[in-house]
Every structure is written in C-alpha cells, then in structure tokens.
Design a protein around this nucleic acid. Structure first.
Lengths: 202, 202
DNA sequence: GCCCGCCTACCGATGGGTCGGTAAGTTCGC
DNA sequence: GCGAACTTACCGACCCATCGGTAGGCGGGC
C-alpha cells in the first residue's frame, strides 16, 4: 500500500498527513515556540510557504497535530476493553516506553501550554478533565467507591494521571535511572492490593 | 525619562538580584524560549543591553536563576527537620499552593529542558537525582525498607516526586478542579497508613 | 480534439517584526 | 579621572505571514 500519488480527486491528501506527522516530531523535539515552520518544511522538502498552504497558521497546525494525536490514542486505548482498567494502563505505559518521541511531545507541550496565551492551553485543560473522568469510571468499576482504604475514585484518578505524567518526565530526563513501566506498575499494584472493598460494597 | 533614576552605585548587587527575581517570574510565565531579554529588562526599567551588562548571555541568566531557586528551596526545606519527612512534604505543598508562579517556573522549565540542546537539561537531570535520593533517605527512615507492603524506598521516592510534579501540572491548568494540597496529602497518607513495618526492622 | 476557465500545489519575494548579541559612547559616584 | 552602570545605535539571523506568481491537471463547450 502505499504508493502515493494520490492526486486530488481522492481524499487523504498525504502531503497534509506528512506535515502533521513531521510537525508532531518537531514539536516534541523543540517545543512549539522552539519550532519554526521553516524547519518542519525543510524536513519534508518544502518551503515554509508550502506548509502554510495546508495550514493557515502555525497555531492551526499545532491544534491539528494535537487533535490527531488525541484521536489516535483514543482509538488505541479505548477500544474493546473487556479487560480491567488498570491492566490497560499498564499496557499503555509499556507501549509508551517504546516511543519516547510521542511521550516527549505530550510532556513538552502540556507544560508549555500553561504559559501565557499558549494556543494549546484549552486543549490540555479539556484533555485532563476528560482523562480524569475516564479513570474515575474505570477505577470505580474495578475498585469500588473506596480505594486503598481512603481514596475516592476522583482522588485516585487524579493521582494516577499525575503518576503517569510525573514518571514520564523523570524517565525522559534520565531513562537509565527511571524504570517507567515498572514504577507505574508498582503504583497500580499498590492501588489494587491495598484495596479493601468497602463495607457498603456488594 | 531620566527622572526614574534610582541611585546607581552604592549597594551594587541590588540590580543583579532584581534581574534574577524578575527573570524567574518571566521564565515562569512564558518559558525560556518564549522569554526575551528585552521583556525582562522592560519590567525592571532597563534596556535589554542593561541586562546583558550583568549576565553575559541569556543562557547564563537562566542558569543563575535556577541556581538561586534551588538554593532558596534547599534552605527552606532542608533546615532543622526534626519532624517526619512526609510532614515536611505536606507543608511544602501547602506553601507551593500559595505561589503558583514558582510552581509554574519549575513545571514549565523542567519539561522544556527535555527539548533539544536546552541549557537547563543537565541542571534538571541532576536535580531529579538529588530529589529522589533525598526522599529515599527520608522514606527509609520513616517507613522502613518495605513501604505499603511492596515498594522499596527507591520506588516510593520516584512515585512521590512524580505525584508532586504531575499534580502541579494538573493544578496549574485547572486550579478549581484540582486540590493540590489535598491530593498530595491523600497520597502521603496512603503511603503511611498502608505501611506495615517490615519484620526485619529495628 | 482543442481551448478555456478553474482547481490544487506549490515557490520567490518581501514585509514587518523580534531575537540575542556587540560596539561605542555617556553619566555618575567616588 | 577611573570604573561601574548603564545607554544608543546597530547587526545579522530568524520569525510568521501575505502576495503574486507558475506549473500542471481537469471538466465542459464546441
């Protein structure tokens, strides 16, 4: 599959997809503010103006990149989940450990987004709310209303998200000292095993 | 306008300290790459070249800012610590919740530092190693060799750092939805209460 | 079967701005 | 009159974005 030559009549402009892919990589390497359109273009073999032919502004390119990444992740992680929620988390982390580039894009851009007037700010606020909500549901189903003796599912969800993000940062900075998968696993196991189903539970 | 003129000379180092303080604030707001020397200067009432009179390059300014912040934190947090290690963490978090600017500087710059050729990269690698080591000691002393049933002090230390960082990011993005102090407290309590002193303990 | 008008996909030139950094003063306190 | 603490004046680079092309494909009228 593959051979491209998809001229206009068909859909999927693959030039556009290529730009999105390369832009994600570049934003991961250098952040949004550290990335120029010219660099993205050069890596593809275009001029800066060529990139702007497909995306009206640099901001718009960033937003599209984030949407795409979100959609891909959601697809992979949310599919047929018969398995326990916490097992899915461990698997996601194992997968992430094989692709530091993607982890880095998320880590770099989410932190950069808290700076002034950053175009991705709303995206990340929304994304974290969604993520916490998602984990609340999964945790409640798997561990009940009272987790590890004293946490509500809401609290445990925020902690879980925090652990994943925080460990990813430590791992990016110092991969030899930080065992991403193992540590997430420790936390997950801790949540699970120190859990005593509440009296009010079935 | 010339009438601004606060006296020159005299207490020579005031200006330098002022620059460091304002630079920290500005890096926090906009990141390193998003901050220009001219902006820092303007906030003080100098020209960009006035700032460069005190620091040879923008990189050097960043490094000095980080060193200063580190020293201040170390001083505050490491002093006479008769109290349990985990109590100190809770207090630090309570304190941090009152000054989002400082939290933001750390969050933004640490994540930015994983990007290519970032001048603060070494600083943060080192800082995280030190932080983990510090917590390893504190946790071992307070909770022994086996924490919450199955964690080593090394694992618990990395998780603790991750929780603090991850929660800070969520809190910066969405302060009304994320109770920074309360959530750190939950985690600390969880570590403490689900801990069963190992048989091999003194 | 050919030309016309319209489409996508770019590139070159350029604008208007900002960046970090240098060089050469000027002002002021001692 | 010397040195610290600045300033003005610049420089070269890089930034995003716009404008105005050009090259080529495509459908329709005739």
């Amino acid at each position: 599959m593959g051979d491209v030559d998809n001229r206009r009549g068909g859909r999927a402009h693959n030039r556009r997809d290529q730009i999105l892919r390369v832009a994600l990589e570049t934003f991961a390497e250098r952040g949004y503010r550290g990335t120029s359109l010219a660099l993205v273009a050069e890596r593809i073999g275009l001029t800066q103006q060529g990139v702007l032919h497909y995306f009206p502004t640099k901001q718009a390119l960033l937003v599209e990149v984030l949407k795409l990444r979100d959609a891909e992740d959601y697809q992979r992680f949310d599919g047929g989940s018969d398995e326990p929620h916490l097992d899915g988390i461990r698997q996601l982390m194992e997968f992430n450990a094989t692709r530091p580039g993607v982890v880095q894009s998320f880590t770099v851009l989410s932190a950069e987004s808290v700076t002034e007037a950053h175009p991705a700010r709303d995206f990340f606020v929304q994304r974290y709310r969604t993520a916490r909500g998602h984990h609340v549901d999964g945790l409640r189903e798997e561990l009940g209303e009272r987790i590890a003796g004293r946490l509500s599912p809401e609290q445990a969800a925020a902690l879980l998200v925090a652990v994943m993000d925080g460990l990813q940062l430590q791992w990016l900075l110092d991969p030899e000292q930080v065992d991403l998968t193992g540590l997430v696993d420790s936390f997950v196991t801790m949540l699970r095993d120190s859990n005593v189903p509440a009296a009010a539970d079935a």
